[in-house]
């Protein structure tokens, strides 16, 4: 899977100095960009965040102590930059959330499903390893409204506790739960439309 010649992902633990700066973009740019684009589905913004990360790493490279791989250290900085971006998007705390017409249209007046969910063939264990599912779920993530996407990215992709996500996005717990609930239903709906029920 890994291709060390294209993207060296590890640095010997004994080495305390980071690799030469002029190798960073070629060696780590791809890793950083892919991490970012799965969370911020806009190429220009993702590139800006990668740039900010590399510039911050340049300023802080003296602090790299070789205890983890250099790529891991860079991703650590990148995570903060992505969260900073999410936070900046939420400068104005939303007092109330608008209705989500897409989610509302999934149920009729009686609260029954308009389109019955199907049985998906894959298990969660298979999903955790599925190469076919990743691009589909990524496309569905991109289709989410931004606040739902940011909430679910932080909560599930970055595996943060709900109260952490509330703090970062300046949301009440109730509003966060509403966003996550809508995001889960939209992802479910979107994936089913893409035929995920047939994947194994």
């Amino acid at each position: 899977m890994t291709n060390p010649s294209a993207e060296p992902a590890t640095t010997p633990a004994s080495s305390v100095s980071p690799p030469p700066v002029d190798t960073w973009v070629d060696a780590y740019g791809g890793i950083l960009f892919r991490y970012t684009i799965s969370r911020v589905p806009d190429h220009n913004i993702a590139e800006d965040i990668v740039q900010e990360t590399l510039v911050a790493a340049l300023a802080a490279q003296g602090k790299f102590n070789g205890q983890c791989a250099f790529s891991t250290w860079l991703v650590g900085i990148l995570k903060h930059k992505v969260v900073d971006y999410f936070r900046a998007q939420h400068r104005q705390p939303a007092a109330s959330l608008d209705d989500d017409k897409v989610v509302e249209s999934m149920f009729n007046n009686m609260g029954h499903w308009r389109n019955a969910p199907k049985r998906w063939h894959m298990t969660a264990e298979q999903a955790a390893e599925s190469a076919e599912l990743s691009p589909l779920i990524q496309a569905c993530l991109e289709a989410l409204p931004p606040m739902q996407r940011e909430a679910i990215v932080m909560r599930l992709m970055d595996d943060q506790a709900a109260d952490e996500v509330c703090k970062t996005l300046q949301l009440s717990a109730t509003n966060l739960y509403v966003l996550l609930h809508r995001a889960r239903l939209r992802l479910r709906n979107c994936l089913e439309k893409k035929g995920v029920d047939q994947l194994e």
């Binding site: 899977m1 890994t2 291709n3 294209a6 993207e7 992902a9 973009v25 740019g29 791809g30 890793i31 960009f33 892919r34 991490y35 684009i37 799965s38 190429h43 590139e47 990668v50 790529s71 891991t72 991703v75 969910p117 998906w120 894959m122 298990t123 969660a124 264990e125 999903a127 955790a128 390893e129 599925s130 599912l133 990743s134 691009p135 779920i137 990524q138 993530l141 679910i152 990215v153 599930l156 992709m157 970055d158 595996d159 889960r184 992802l187 479910r188 994936l191 089913e192 995920v196």
Partner: peptide, 27 residues
């Protein structure tokens, strides 16, 4: 169970990528 599948898939997507992916790279 779909919620569970979606969570597993998102966690997978969240792991920092290590290998190349020609479709998604810096221009």
């Amino acid at each position: 169970s779909q919620f569970e599948i979606i969570e597993a898939a998102l966690r997978k997507l969240g792991r920092p990528p290590e290998s190349g992916n020609a479709n998604q790279s810096l221009s």
